[in-house]
Design a protein around this nucleic acid. Sequence first.
DNA 1: GTTCTAGCCTAGGGCCCCTAGGAATGCTCA
DNA 2: TGAGCATTCCTAGGGGCCCTAGGCTAGAAC
Lengths: 197, 197
Amino acid sequence: MVRAGLTVERVTLAGAELADEAGFAQVTMAQVARRLGVRDASLYAHVRNLEDLRGRIALLAADEKTLLIAEATTGRAGKDALVAYANAWRAYAHAHPGRYTATQTPIPIDPALAAAAPGPRRAVELSYGMLRGYGLAEPDLTDAVRLLRSTFHGFVALEAAGSFAHARPPEDTWSRALDALHVLLEHWPTSRAGDSS
Amino acid sequence: MVRAGLTVERVTLAGAELADEAGFAQVTMAQVARRLGVRDASLYAHVRNLEDLRGRIALLAADEKTLLIAEATTGRAGKDALVAYANAWRAYAHAHPGRYTATQTPIPIDPALAAAAPGPRRAVELSYGMLRGYGLAEPDLTDAVRLLRSTFHGFVALEAAGSFAHARPPEDTWSRALDALHVLLEHWPTSRAGDSS
DNA sequence: GTTCTAGCCTAGGGCCCCTAGGAATGCTCA
DNA sequence: TGAGCATTCCTAGGGGCCCTAGGCTAGAAC
């Protein structure tokens, strides 16, 4: 009998690949085990249970996404940084749909595991760094980061759900939206709402 | 033996209530049947299968959400309409989290069923009507609608996922974001990107 | 009152999650 | 080299869920 040589990392990766190919909902102990040529009971030596496995996939995806964004935005500022950040975000969601939904699905993740992951902290740094060129101060900085992240996530989520199935290509809307957000950041209503209508 | 008096509507409603209380992932034939005091096999007389039931919940939720937005925005224009639309959206997501995730989850819905639902058409009308005061023309109108819907959905999704768990209350960010979007719609970069940095 | 149409039932197969306990593998160390 | 040992992977099995097949009964139609 040849051992399969499983580790937590290999199991998690197999789950991530399965998520991208068949959807995150199809990530199941039995399916992952089949993909690894192993019985499902064997996975419990490496992963606590299904929820644990899904949480690890979510953490892996968050780290990968953050890393891609970091690579895309280094050395850029202003609108260049905004566009690079946004495009890297959307590209990851397109390239790894299952992993991406894993990051979104609210899973109770093991705190110790989450603390060891470098993703979240790095993601916050990147978000704030991207906006450095626009001259915003707290709390506007936090609000702007949240608005941008909301828009990026919402766009790819609606795109994945097929809400943009009409005539105009999503790509066109996407680039126009980035233009608009850039303008917004330059005209950010700092002290009180600019209510001119 | 007393009959339970099931109908498609009652089964769908029970599923929707269960979704709000326990999460959309917990909407299962067995759970819904238990809630109705019935065996799971009995539900198949009213609903084709689990996927069909979930699709009906999604459609119900979409209709309810659209109705609330319609009530909130009638008679309003400009920023008033924008704020009313956005607040109704977020309020529905908060009041019915399970139903709301049902609308987001990409479920293959029976086309005949979807065609009979008034929600989608009405939702499109409302979105475009809300922007009537900003003087946008196509394709900017479509892009603006998509941007707004992306932001609204992304915000409540990240909120539900616990991404805004830090110091600043989400409410504050939300109202500032609406101010910012209002400014954005007034400064919408119509012809070519306003690239002034 | 009989017949017919439903609504609801039990029975059962297949898949999945997870635990318990056994066998084989490959490392450590005398 | 070979015994001991931790780890890896296995089979067996219980419980839950989805769904189909087929039977029984309540209420409507005649």
